[in-house]
């Protein structure tokens, strides 16, 4: 699975990082600017939790990558 963050939508709520610190990191300004990132299977649940808690809906999970 891949996480894809829409940087233009991120408003720095930080909820992705709080819910899934092993998947999501924020930059020095407090925004998520990570590139599309492959998530290992054991972190997929965390990644999903971080995504559904983003108030901006800025995080997309691409499952095709794992197929």
């Amino acid at each position: 699975m891949k996480v894809i963050v829409d940087h233009a939508r991120c408003q720095g709520h930080a909820l992705c990082m709080l819910k899934a610190p092993q998947v999501y990191q924020l930059n020095d300004d407090g925004y998520n600017s990570m590139p599309p990132t492959e998530v290992p299977p054991e972190l997929e649940e965390q990644a999903r939790l971080g995504a559904i808690n983003c108030p901006e809906g800025a995080i997309r999970l691409d499952k095709r990558a794992a197929d």
Binding site: Q11, H13, A14, L15, G30, L49, I52, P55, E56
Partner: peptide
């Protein structure tokens, strides 16, 4: 709660900076 993504700090460009 699994889905707790509130926006009590606001949303959009003015989202609260002090939240951190």
């Amino acid at each position: 709660r699994k889905r707790a993504g509130h926006f009590n700090f606001g949303t959009g460009p003015h989202r609260c900076l002090g939240s951190n």
